Amino acid sequence: MWETENHSTIRLDEVDLKIIRQLQSNARITNKDLAAQLNLTTTPIYERVKRLEKMGVINSYVALINPVKVGKGLMALCMVRLEKHTKDKLAAFEKHVANIPEVVECYHLAGQYDYHLKILVRDMNTFQDFIVNKLSTNENLANVQSSFVMSKITDTTAIPMLRNS
């Protein structure tokens, strides 16, 4: 059993977990090929995938793009601290960063910093422009600490699908 965001329970059996693992590895796999890999027929696989989609376990199918190949060779991780933490100030900052295309991930944190941003840009000049002309235009910004990724050690979008975790 798995608990959802609204605390309802979803029952996933081993076949569901295998389907999810396969789709995370290759979202373009056909139901026929998926059925063959799991030693099932196509119809139950189709029905299970549709059920997983309907339950919100599967949110979407995407193509993962190599950022370097499309001119986004610099990845920066920015830790952001805000001046004020009122509900409206937090919402305004979140709306602000959600509208900046260079921000590909944004997390609201507990701890020393308020937000963690993942930024993809072409180069250091583009990053400077991002900081000066986009991020720092939010008047509630108190501090930004940036680090630059030198190399990726692990990079996956797959969520571990272990039976008892």
Rank of each mutant, 00 (worst) to 15 (best):
A35R: 08
R48G: 00
R51Y: 00
N59T: 04
F130Y: 06
L117F: 11
K134C: 03
N66W: 00
L90F: 07
E53F: 00
A91G: 09
N59A: 11
N140L: 05
M79V: 01
P44H: 07
K32N: 09
Y107H: 08
L38T: 02
N143D: 13
K134E: 05
L82G: 10
L64T: 13
N140F: 06
Y107V: 04
V57F: 06
D33G: 07
Y46A: 04
G111L: 13
E139G: 04
E83R: 11
L135M: 04
Y115D: 08
K50E: 09
R81T: 14
N133S: 09
L120N: 10
P101Q: 04
N66Q: 10
P101C: 01
Y61L: 03
E105P: 02
K32E: 11
N99K: 06
R28N: 06
L135D: 05
T41P: 07
G56A: 02
I29L: 10
T137P: 03
I29R: 09
M124D: 12
E94S: 07
N143T: 09
N140I: 05
A98M: 06
N59E: 14
R122E: 15
N31I: 01
T41H: 13
G111S: 10
G111C: 10
M55P: 01
N133H: 12
I29G: 01
R28E: 12
F127N: 08
L34C: 03
I45P: 10
E105Q: 13
A63C: 05
C106E: 07
R48F: 00
P67Y: 02
V103W: 02
T30E: 09
K69Q: 13
K84E: 14
D129P: 01
V103A: 02
D114N: 12
V121H: 02
L90R: 09
S136I: 00
I100F: 01
I65M: 14
F127D: 05
E53Y: 00
L82C: 10
R48E: 02
V80E: 15
T30L: 05
C78I: 07
E83W: 08
K32H: 04
V70D: 03
A27H: 03
S136A: 13
P44K: 10
